[in-house]
Design a protein around this nucleic acid. Structure first.
Lengths: 191, 191
DNA sequence: GTCTATAACAGGATAGAC
DNA sequence: GTCTATCCTGTTATAGAC
């Protein structure tokens, strides 16, 4: 390879990710993506021959991989529930920039007349996250059904707080969510 | 006026609203808007001289007016809290088609580098809704601070459940939210 | 008020030089 | 691997007939 990459893959995906999260799939024009990445449109096509769709696919895949490593897997460990949740809250705060950045699961979600190109991945991501939270709730003493209900509520609060933080232009709702996460999921546990 | 309108204003706004909610602002092309409304592009411009931006403005204004009449005002009445919430839940179920349609507050929300053209209206809408729920919680016996926290959580759950319903392709999360709304907001009240 | 036709532009995507 | 220049399609918006 004669000429080295001017932006490494990981960095490139991160920069593209910002654009998709800030503007949505339709709003992310190649001009914006090129500017944010520091590459020209043609260079982007060299890295992503299938174009914008592929960029979004890889951005989403990277986000899901991050989630797996930083949220799902840690939640499955055998540390005490509250401890795991505190650690995850810290990671989430960084991932969503304190509520200033949207979630791809929301931004890339299919319109009503689905399924869109991302539906399967998004659906799987929701299920995995719910499952992971539910496991923690069960570990804390809730029965299967109650644990799942708690987990779903936690995921709703996560996404709702992100929507509200953007809508209000304030990081407070998201910060509150993180602060209450452990209590919302675990309070009233049998043991 | 020689020729009558082929679609009355209210109906027109409703049809345009569907497109914006399903595809977002950028995704709502004039071709889609024309098809959904049954008018030609040129006719849309006759009704909305300022173009797509004006259409979205009016669609958003109509949604906020609906919210005022069907949610905010009823919540301020002096019926029993649980009764008011049950009535509002029914209205919300219709408004969001059982969770199948997204919320404009989410879909038109400003990207990170705000403020966008809708930011002010969206922010005001969130505040009004939180305020209305908080009043109900206070009416049920919570102090100001606790009532506000409950109200914020209810609004987060509303939007979170909508995001999740779209993501999972299931109306269940939204239906659960509605079923639990009264309990989430009021359980543990002093009186 | 509504339409067909079209202008003016931006978007995604490609060619070919370096 | 990256770039400039270009193509082509779809998008916003307007003109002018009915």
């Amino acid at each position: 390879m004669a000429r080295p990459q001017s932006v490494d893959d990981e960095d490139l995906i991160a920069r593209l990710s910002c654009v998709f999260r800030d503007t949505g799939y339709e709003g992310a024009s190649l001009a914006l993506l090129a500017e944010a990445s520091g590459l020209s449109k043609a260079s982007l096509y060299h890295r992503f021959p299938a174009g914008k769709q592929q960029m979004a696919d890889e951005v989403l895949a990277a986000a899901l991989a991050w989630y797996g490593a930083n949220v799902i897997d840690p939640l499955k460990g055998d540390a005490p529930p509250a401890e795991k949740l505190a650690a995850v809250a810290k990671r989430l705060n960084g991932f969503y920039s304190g509520g200033r950045q949207a979630c791809l699961l929301n931004v890339l979600a299919a319109p009503r007349a689905e399924p869109g190109p991302f539906s399967t991945a998004i659906k799987g991501a929701f299920q995995a996250l719910i499952q992971a939270f539910a496991q923690v709730a069960q570990q804390a003493g809730f029965d299967t059904e109650a644990a799942r209900a708690r987990a779903e509520r936690a995921v709703m609060l996560l996404h709702g707080s992100l929507v509200m933080s953007r809508g209000l232009g304030s990081s407070r709702p998201f910060a509150n969510f993180l602060a209450n996460l452990s209590g919302d999921l675990l309070d009233g546990a049998a043991q």
